[in-house]
Every structure is written in C-alpha cells, then in structure tokens.
Design a protein around this nucleic acid. Structure first.
Lengths: 137, 137
DNA sequence: CAATAATCTACTAAATCAGTAGGCTAAAAG
DNA sequence: CTTTTAGCCTACTGATTTAGTAGATTATTG
C-alpha cells in the first residue's frame, strides 16, 4: 500500500510542475488545492527540499519551487525518497541490500526469486517515467 | 515492504510443492526447516487452507498438502490472499477498487496515472509466474 | 483411551502511520 | 526597525498494523 506521505508528495510535485518555476508556491495553496493536511504537507515538502527536489524561499512571496525540469525528475528517485526501497524485500534491493536473517541461501530461495522479478518490473516503470510523464494530458 | 506473513506463506507453499502431495507435511516440520515461528505459521497455513490452496488432515500422520499442482497455482492468487491487493492504491485496484476520498478526478490524477503503470507491471509478473516457476532449479 | 496434530479464540508488545501543537527563523514591506 | 509572512524545527499523540504468544478444543490414528 502506498503511504499518504508518498501520495501527497507526488501530488505536490505534480502541482508544482504545472506552475512557473520562478514563482514560489506556498504550502497552504498546495494543501488547499490537493486536500492535504497543511502540517503534514509541510514536513513532506521540507523533506523534498532536503533531498534536492525542491527549493524554497521564506517570507512574503515565499514558498516552494521545483529545482529541475519535470522531465529530469525520475520516479525512481522520487519513490526512493518518499516511499523508501523499491524492492519489497531487502535481499533483492539495489540501494538498501541486506541479507535475510532467516534465509540460509538466496539462490534457492523462492521468495528471493519472485521478488527479484517484481523489483525489475517496478524499476522498469519508475526508470521510464519522469514527473513530466505523469502530469495530466 | 513484503510482510513476514507473505514471505512465510510463500516459503511454506514452496516447501510443500517439493514434497509428495499424497503425504501430509506437519506444520512443525515446515516451521523448523524454514525458520518460522510455529504458531505464526499455524495461522498462515490455516488461512491458505481456508482460501483453497491447501488441504489438511488432523491427528497422527496429519498435516498440510497442496490441493493443486504447483504449475496451476498462480502468484496473482497467492499474493492477493497473503499480501492483499496488488495495486498500491485502491483507485487502480481490479479486485478491491475504491474511489479516493480526497481525489476529485482520477483521469487527471498523477498518482493514479503512475500507479496504474505499476499495477500493470506487477500483474504481468504475478500472472506469468506459478508456484512451479519460483522453486529452486 | 492416549497420543498426535490441526483448529479456534484471545491477548499483546513493538513499530509505523498520519497527523497536531507550538515555537523559531529568515525575508520582505512599510 | 518593527510587523507580517511563510518556511523550519522539535516533540508529542492516537490509531492501526505487524508479528507474534498462550492456551484450550477438536478430530484422527493406533
């Protein structure tokens, strides 16, 4: 199940992608338009700024804006930051690999075998989609 | 993240697939061999029996056994029973569809758009893999 | 009848999720 | 230089899910 955090984060990015990058957009505006709790969105956008997706400006006329062009923002990177590892199991994760404590051998493990295929299928999607690809129209 | 329940369920199914369908295998044997908590596995196997994957026999010489051949058991069905919906969001789910409370329009929703692609990619994997496909060798 | 092994009910500790509350800091306007 | 604006930061909280445990019950076999 996709977390609300990821859902809201994606919606906020999509909202910002449709606006002028040179004019900051306030959290409150995004929250209202996308029906998101203001305070919750606040922490999500802060996170997206710290991980290099957004820039921000304080004070009057401040807000958030995309740092890169929508077509340069890969879903792989967005998902890893918002949702965490793309793999469903650490033993098939590229960026967060960890051996399973219970599993004696990955080669013969059927869970590993299946989850590897699932990971590849998901990576394929996330690698071939940028923020620009998921905008309306 | 894949739940332990699903992980253990898959391992148990794989274990049973490698054994004679006519000779029941005890929970304790599977639990020991796969390093799974006995009581937890108990409830998982019960669930798999109630959903038509396993048969059981009580008393001495009892245990669990597969009802169908491994190549007849689709991962789509196993995953839906163990892990729940394959879609990451109810608004793109085939079997558990639900409208998002916050989202006014699915057509223009970028989350919907992305998650539809993800769902299709995952379905592709689960539909093309049976229990036989994820066994060792 | 005794032993075996699945079935059923109920409880629980720990973690994660989805927020809230409230004060702090930087920038712009007057 | 003070007020307003809007993001920044820390800490807490209720609800839900996860991964179990404990213990009694029921059916089967020898």
């Amino acid at each position: 199940m996709l977390s609300k955090k990821t859902k809201y984060g994606l919606k906020a990015l999509a909202y910002l992608a449709a606006r002028d990058r040179n004019v900051p957009t306030q959290i409150a505006e995004i929250a209202k338009h996308e029906n998101i709790s203001l305070k919750f969105l606040e922490s999500i956008l802060l996170n997206l700024r710290k991980t290099g997706f957004l820039g921000s400006k304080k004070g009057k006329g401040g807000g958030y804006y995309l740092i890169k062009e929508p077509h340069e923002i890969l879903m792989t990177d967005v998902m890893r930051v918002l949702e965490g590892p793309i793999a469903m199991v650490p033993c098939v994760s590229l960026n967060f690999y960890e051996k399973c404590a219970d599993c004696p051998d990955e080669i013969t493990c059927s869970v590993n075998k299946l989850m590897l295929k699932v990971r590849d299928a998901n990576l394929e999607v996330y690698r071939n989609n940028t923020l620009a690809d998921i905008l309306a129209q």
